[in-house]
């Protein structure tokens, strides 16, 4: 595989807004730090004053009912919704100089390159994350080509390798994703997001539209890959079973605010906030 392109040198002639000093409480070995993140839709709150840290290799689950602000939070984190307040900070890898950068003051070229290379986003609906008009192989190959891969044979063999990892038969490599089942499309989307070896993956209800049996297989797969690659992940889900299976830590959201957070077992087995208690008790125990 081609070595990932490095970040453009600092001091490029792109205008950057004046930097506010970094918050004082950033963890030294963290990966992502969010402070007081707020998004408003008119007078309605999308999410308010969300603060958390994420460490490399850690999986953070965000749970809550629909309308609780968890998808808004995810969209704000990935830059798809403009934020009305707060900060998003990311620790760049050591071979790029290391250290924390404020994603909202970073120049757009740097931010886009960073997101392309270091981050993955798995959408709830595979059609939002795939190019349905090009083959499965091209879908997996595109992120590689975007980072400069120019050897067809290499790209193809990496695509085949990833199809195997996500349990899609190699002979489907030249088929269009629209001929795939929902579960296969979702696995293809995961392969497309992981092929560049990102450090951080965001997932929005990754098992949302799938049958229960298909969900279990996908969850197994995601858990295996996250472990194997040492990925950090932020997973939004309304399904506490998914949260329990994948997440190390949980944040519970209600009406745009985080009402409780902690280790997954702790939150689910000994919920403190009445809303969390309600959520937990409303799920059939298995």
């Amino acid at each position: 595989m081609t070595t990932p392109a490095s970040l453009p040198a600092t001091g490029q002639a792109t205008a950057e807004p004046p930097r506010a000093p970094l918050p004082a409480d950033l963890p030294e070995d963290g990966l992502l730090a969010v402070r007081d993140l707020t998004v408003r839709y008119g007078r309605r709150l999308g999410c308010a004053e969300v603060t958390f840290d994420l460490w490399p290799g850690e999986v953070l689950g965000i749970v809550g009912e629909s309308g609780s602000g968890k998808t808004t939070l995810l969209n704000a984190l990935t830059g798809r919704v403009a934020i009305d307040g707060g900060r998003r900070l990311y620790a760049v890898p050591a071979d790029d100089g290391g250290g924390w950068v404020d994603l909202d003051t970073l120049s757009e070229p740097k931010r886009r390159l960073l997101m392309r290379r270091d981050w993955g986003i798995v959408h709830q609906h595979p059609r939002d994350g795939l190019r349905l008009a090009v083959s499965a192989g091209a879908n997996i190959g595109e992120p590689l080509m975007a980072l400069g891969a120019r050897h067809y044979g290499d790209i193809r063999s990496q695509a085949l390798g990833w199809l195997d990892k996500v349990e899609i038969a190699p002979e489907r490599i030249d088929d269009l994703p629209r001929t795939f089942s929902g579960g296969m499309q979702q696995r293809l989307q995961i392969a497309r997001n992981l092929v560049t070896g990102p450090r951080l993956v965001f997932m929005d209800e990754p098992t949302g539209g799938l049958d229960v049996s298909v969900q279990a297989r996908l969850l197994d797969l995601v858990r295996g890959l996250v472990d194997e690659m040492g990925l950090a992940a932020v997973i939004v889900t309304h399904d506490l079973a998914v949260a329990r299976l994948l997440a190390h830590r949980l944040m519970v959201m209600k009406e745009g605010r985080v009402v409780e957070s902690g280790l997954t077992d702790q939150v689910l087995d000994d919920p403190h906030h009445p809303y969390t208690q309600l959520l937990v008790s409303s799920v059939l125990q298995v």
Binding site: E108, P109, R112, L113, R116, R131, V134, S135, G137, A138, G141, E142, P143, M145, A146, L147, G148, R150, Y152, I155, R156, I173, D174
Partner: peptide, 22 residues
């Protein structure tokens, strides 16, 4: 315009990839 400004040309190779694959 953004793709040109940021030299994000990977998608152009997707088309060529598809040609070869097909």
């Amino acid at each position: 315009r953004k793709m040109h400004a940021l030299e994000e040309y990977g998608v152009m190779h997707v088309k060529l990839y598809e040609d070869i694959a097909r």
